[in-house]
Amino acid sequence: MILNEEEKKVILDSIRDVNDFPKPGIVFKDITTLLNNKEAFQVLMNHLESRYKSYNLDYIAGIDSRGFIFGAALADRLGIGFVPVRKKGKLPGTTICEKYELEYGFDEVEIHIDAFNNQIGARVLLMDDLIATGGTAVAASRLVVDTNANLIEVCFLLNLEFLNGVKRVEEIAPVYSLLNI
């Protein structure tokens, strides 16, 4: 299932561009304006529910932090569990970590080792709001796979095509991007 042009416009028009944030030269895609637009959020969630209801998913994993919003809302609609993939040091209990490269240094994401209730082959959808270079998404994808889950697909609301991050993630799992910009 693909968004029609009217649905794409409703969603895209609800996302605000913020110039020079978090640093000069960056155009930040602010999804808070999508979240407070009930029509756009409903169009988005209806589309995601329609797309994924036949995937027989067991869990949705959301990447810290905006992936939590869409992932948890979709998990609720599908009647399945939600699992957070957090920045290092934010989860209690036993976790596994994956390091990834940033423009100037490294960062890490982590997941509980038993995030999918030790279910071998659990069918998981990984979600985030945006993919740029793909570092965080690749690390999160590896974590899902490292828990012995079956990563069915990685879903992004926005794909910044010129940064080619999707290609890196596709080496691990199929990718679906609602809007390619």
Rank of each mutant, 00 (worst) to 15 (best):
G89K: 07
D128S: 06
L143E: 00
R77V: 10
V27I: 05
S177I: 06
K87G: 06
L163Y: 02
S141E: 00
E6C: 08
S141G: 05
Q42M: 04
E101L: 12
E103N: 13
L44M: 10
T33G: 12
G105K: 03
F106N: 01
G93W: 03
V138D: 00
D13G: 12
A140S: 02
L151T: 14
T94L: 12
V109L: 13
L34I: 07
D20C: 11
D20Y: 11
R142T: 11
T94A: 12
V138C: 01
R51D: 14
A122N: 15
E39A: 05
I11G: 08
V83L: 06
I11D: 11
Y176I: 05
G71A: 07
R51G: 05
N180I: 08
L158P: 03
F116Q: 03
K23Q: 04
I152Q: 10
N46M: 10
L163Q: 05
G67E: 06
L125F: 01
T136P: 15
F70E: 05
S14P: 08
L130P: 09
L74C: 07
G25H: 03
K29R: 08
G79K: 12
S141F: 15
Y176P: 08
M127S: 06
R86T: 05
D114S: 12
G71P: 11
Y100R: 00
I60Q: 13
I26V: 14
L151D: 00
Y52D: 04
E153T: 02
F68H: 05
N117T: 09
F116D: 01
D76M: 15
L130C: 03
R51S: 08
N117E: 11
T136V: 09
Y52M: 04
R77Y: 10
A173N: 03
L163S: 02
A61M: 15
K38S: 09
R51L: 15
T95Q: 04
D146V: 06
V154S: 13
K9D: 04
E103P: 00
K29S: 00
D30K: 04
E39R: 14
F116K: 14
I60S: 10
M45F: 06
N36H: 11
K53P: 09
M45T: 14
L34P: 01
L126K: 00
L143H: 06
K167D: 10
K38H: 02
A149M: 14
S14K: 03
L151A: 15
R142W: 11
L179Y: 05
K53L: 07
S65C: 06
E5F: 10
V175M: 04
E170F: 12
